[in-house]
């Protein structure tokens, strides 16, 4: 059983969480070009690395950020949005 640490609820089995993908800055839809928007909508960084991702602890609906090595599947740290030092 793989564990994930929710910043509010503590260490829980990963089955209590959903993964919502890498955090990606959204371009301004009003000013960006069609190509920039398509790039944002579709393209992904599929190569391995340490990524900042959205995760949610579903029983409590707590959304937070996990920094995870996507090749080793190792979570380095987790924190709430806006609490990154």
């Amino acid at each position: 059983m793989k564990l994930m640490t929710c910043p509010i609820n503590g260490s829980r089995p990963v089955s209590e969480f959903v993964y919502w993908g890498e955090i990606r800055p959204m371009p301004d839809a009003a000013t960006c070009s069609d190509d920039e928007w398509a790039d944002y909508v579709f393209n992904r960084n599929g190569a391995p690395g340490v990524k900042k991702e959205w995760w949610c602890h579903t029983p409590s609906n707590t959304w937070f950020i996990a920094e995870r090595d996507t090749e080793k599947d190792k979570v380095l740290r987790t924190y709430l949005h806006g609490e990154d030092e």
């Binding site: 609820n9 829980r12 579903t58 029983p59």
Partner: peptide, 8 residues
């Protein structure tokens, strides 16, 4: 808050 028999 946890998951019990798959239910939140």
């Amino acid at each position: 808050m946890t998951s019990m028999v798959g239910v939140g």
